[in-house]
Design a protein around this nucleic acid. Sequence first.
DNA 1: ATGGCCATGTAAACTGTTACATGATTCT
DNA 2: AGAATCATGTAACAGTTTACATGGCCAT
Lengths: 205, 205
Amino acid sequence: MARRSQTETAVLGALSMQPMTAYALREAIRDVLGHFWSESFGQIYPTLNALEQQGHVERREGPRSGSSTFVITDSGTARLRELLSEPITATPPRNGLLLRLFFGRTLGVRKCRELLLEARADAERSLAEYDGLARNLSVEEAGTPDLPYVLMTISAGRHGTAGVIAWVDEALALLDGIPDDDTADGGGTTGDGDTVGDTPTNGEP
Amino acid sequence: MARRSQTETAVLGALSMQPMTAYALREAIRDVLGHFWSESFGQIYPTLNALEQQGHVERREGPRSGSSTFVITDSGTARLRELLSEPITATPPRNGLLLRLFFGRTLGVRKCRELLLEARADAERSLAEYDGLARNLSVEEAGTPDLPYVLMTISAGRHGTAGVIAWVDEALALLDGIPDDDTADGGGTTGDGDTVGDTPTNGEP
DNA sequence: ATGGCCATGTAAACTGTTACATGATTCT
DNA sequence: AGAATCATGTAACAGTTTACATGGCCAT
């Protein structure tokens, strides 16, 4: 129940905005909820069938022969409300970037720096994306009752990525305080003449 | 391989800092990496066995009879370096809070506000935690070569939660622009003399 | 001597992704 | 005609959590 219901929530939620085929549902989830949610076909199809059997959605003629459009029913809306009210099941944290940085001494200063720069580039890209998205929606969907809620989730993304950027800069500064002694090492040409050795390591603020 | 190796990374990484029993390993992962990583017993034990068979860790006498302390070998260190250098496998996003807010029209303004206030309270709590942690470590572990890397991950947590707090405030302001018509509704008495709505519900510690 | 923590391990259940098989429709 | 896209569905697999079974050690 626990986690499956989360898929149910996403599916019913999407259908609460408009009827769709399973295929379109997956695209909507990818494109619209993509910043904070994901579902795969393997989840969507069985969930829709279950939902249909429970009477929470109904299958109508689809846009093509053999395809079906799913429509949420009243009981489906009620169920959605129920699901949305359930306590949030937190997903256990798993941040691959931080895992790597935590063991940065083994990874090596250079690679850490690369990871951080990459992360910042990613963040800057999505920041621009969020801004564009928010601007477009505010115009195109002006007046839609869902707008403020959608904007809220975009705002979450914006603040999150802004935080990442601020963090990266701080982290890079921290890295600069570490001598490039590179416990780990690139693929061959090591710095060799790397001077070094006794540098006091720190320079704490 | 793909995802299992992430567990391997965490295990080898932890052992690279100091030898431990499997039990201690799990505690270390929970307590030290907890902000950005998690592993369960069911993963740790089999992984340790596999790692032992590959010669990446060695089993020594543990602190109690029948217990074993695992020590990372040279080949284990090499393997760790390899794993850390692998591209980050991004975990698909799954943010239950944003999922709920996105369908806020169905959830209802009041509940959205509650969720946001709760999120802010959580964030403020961990912010304080991060700050305390950073201060303690800077003193107690001063000079440890791992310190800057550890501080980096704490800094990530700090910026992340700071972002959450900033976002919550913005989101609450957005919510205030929505009439309390509450498509969704508490438990029964709809609309009519709805008075209400705006009491901040809380009194959080 | 009892409860609690250290310690190990496994089996079952669950969640979720990926790959595959299939075919209709639309576009070029 | 052929390619791309829409569309449905399943089976196999990978990863992970949870619950359980077990027992030594230590303090009150």
